[in-house]
Design a protein around this nucleic acid. Structure first.
Lengths: 354, 354
DNA sequence: CTGAAAGCGCTAACAT
DNA sequence: ATGTTAGCGCTTTCAG
């Protein structure tokens, strides 16, 4: 009966490889990497010895000596739902291709978020920070230490930022809904809970106001439908992000005396929840109530939800690419980019006749 | 005009803090941690100096000195779709709560997957490896170096494994479908592409065979519907995992001379794709064709897809918990656990009358 | 309670 | 081409 190992099997060090191959540790260090001046024969011997000892260089020792980690970090507010996974996917793919490991951190439910992010910053060569995770002050402080790129967040002076378009497309959505003849609107979602949500709400408001102003200017306010031309926008600052939150908020909203005709939701999950609430209330969508979302999740297709598609993977991929570039050369001015979004019209916003 | 900094702003070191506080670096090291014997006054001075210098200990130096990383890694074959995100979510939440950073690696599209995993293993104190990412030989080798826990994968001797139930529930699914009167079955998905898929296929096959054997034993094979009682199972080893793959495979399958009555898909995405293909072919689901999936994604609810729910977050959470435990004490025997899954019957598998 | 000093394992000058 | 050696920044005995 074999004895159970009592001591944890320690990894071989560069010294052992050197001894076994009959060379110095410096030679081992060189032989194990590419493009270093070593005789083929020596390299062969070293590699052989390394293989026999199953040697892999200690990452922390190497990081300490090199002064870099060969790793990037990404900070999310949460990981619930398909959205973050898509952003992460784009990020990881690029980072890995560039030779960086990826560290991930979620700030949700952590009171010590700032500390966690600060700690993360010491483990990486660059940091991508998503949305509302930590304050601008910390971002600024971090940026003085390590390259940072912001994702889906309002810019901080001197820091790169990648976002997807919210206001313009939200305005387009408003116009589309107005075209369906809706007048009483409600926005479901808390603008303060996310920069993206804030942009979507602002865009909707803008679009609605512009339409009203336009109508008045053309003096045909009365021609159409009398006073009903007064478009109204009601804000339902639901702080949740998921289906349950949407269902709950919509349920109470729909039982009011004067429910909206069109419910614009800050994301698809909220909209999907609203859809359920509407069904439960016996309401016809879009007949009695129009509902729209944002993100174009897979479920949106099957729910026939009108929504807005945004390039989630590109968001992550761009962040990773920019980070890598800035690690090489921190000097260029901060970059900002807004990735295009696209209105995806399906059945939930109103009838579309050909 | 301020000059642009030409040198990257170096972080303060423990030496600078020590000098500023008028103590030795050893004292700084102690004062900055908890439960260490230092005078309150000294600690105060040191903390003050550290704060002024914005000092945070170098992670690689600390790791090298301590011989640990305070980080865990998780390896996925891919990151596409909601499934992996859920597993990761469960993992990250637990790991973070236990004070470990999380490194994530995807092997998809990498020919150097083994190297990447080996590299990752040197950056962490423990490693969770999901499904078909790398071979058993590498797992075994890794396990000799760092604690490893396998997720959704067949066990490797001496290594912890957490999975979700496939065979039993797949058998239940088979019975349910037989109950609907279906005889000609097809399984969409490649059993060789994932241990989970293999289990689901095997379970379906078992369930179908058991039913046939049972029917013969009871001698009522002819009583029911004559020779049509011969249940058949056709395998469509589609290697993709996503909706497009499912749609493509289903399309070609449905144009055959003798299409199946029930299409059991290896996951929801494939099933959702099949649903689209069926709709495009003018087929009624479940009238002309029953379709089932696996995972119970959000979209499945809205598509009315019969599927199987599995505790994805628990999968990740359990892995993280076990890993942490094994890092503390590597000696206990390997653990194995199969988390329960649950059949979720909706409309796509057949009519359900009350 | 605090300081001195020895590593942790590797890379990168600097020699040879 | 290869060896020597000085760090990288921190933790941790071991003294005091």
């Amino acid at each position: 009966m074999a004895m159970k190992a009592l001591t944890k099997p320690r990894q071989a060090t560069i010294y052992q490889v050197a001894e076994r191959a009959g060379v110095s540790i410096a030679t081992v260090s060189r032989a194990l990497r590419e493009d270093t001046p070593v005789t083929d024969e020596t390299r062969r011997r070293v590699r052989e010895a390394a293989a026999e000892l199953q040697f892999t260089p200690s990452r922390s020792a190497r990081s300490l000596a090199e002064g870099r980690h060969a790793a990037n970090g990404i900070v999310f507010p949460d990981l619930v739902g398909p959205y973050f996974a898509e952003v992460l996917l784009g990020y990881e793919a690029v980072a890995a291709g560039l030779g960086s490991s990826v560290l991930i951190l979620t700030t949700r439910d952590r009171r010590d978020a700032a500390d966690a992010v600060r700690d993360l910053a010491r483990r990486v060569d660059g940091l991508a920070v998503h949305g509302r995770t930590v304050g601008d002050d910390l971002i600024a402080a971090l940026a003085g230490t390590v390259p940072v790129v912001l994702i889906a967040r309002d810019p901080v002076p001197g820091v790169d930022t990648v976002r997807t378009g919210n206001r313009r497309t939200a305005r387009a959505l408003a116009e589309h809904l107005l075209g369906h003849g809706h007048h009483r609107f409600a926005f479901l979602g808390d603008p303060d809970s996310s920069p993206d949500f804030a942009g979507r709400y602002a865009g909707l408001r803008d679009g609605l106001q512009a339409a009203r102003a336009n109508a008045e200017k053309q003096g045909n306010a009365g021609k159409r439908a009398g006073r009903r031309d007064d478009v109204a926008l009601h804000l339902v600052p639901e702080t949740g992000f998921d289906l349950e939150a949407g269902e709950r908020a919509a349920r109470s909203l729909l039982t009011r005396r004067n429910p909206p005709q069109a419910l614009v939701c800050a994301n698809d999950e909220l909209a999907l929840g609203a859809l359920r609430a509407a069904a439960a209330a016996g309401l016809d969508v879009p007949g009695d109530l129009a509902i729209t979302g944002w993100d174009d999740l897979l479920a949106a297709r099957f729910a026939g939800l009108t929504t807005v598609a945004q390039p989630m993977r590109s968001l992550g991929a761009t962040a990773a690419r920019w980070l890598d570039r800035r690690i090489d050369d921190p000097s260029p001015a901060a970059r900002r980019r807004v990735l295009p979004t696209r209105l995806v019209v399906r059945g939930s916003c109103g009838d579309h006749h050909l």
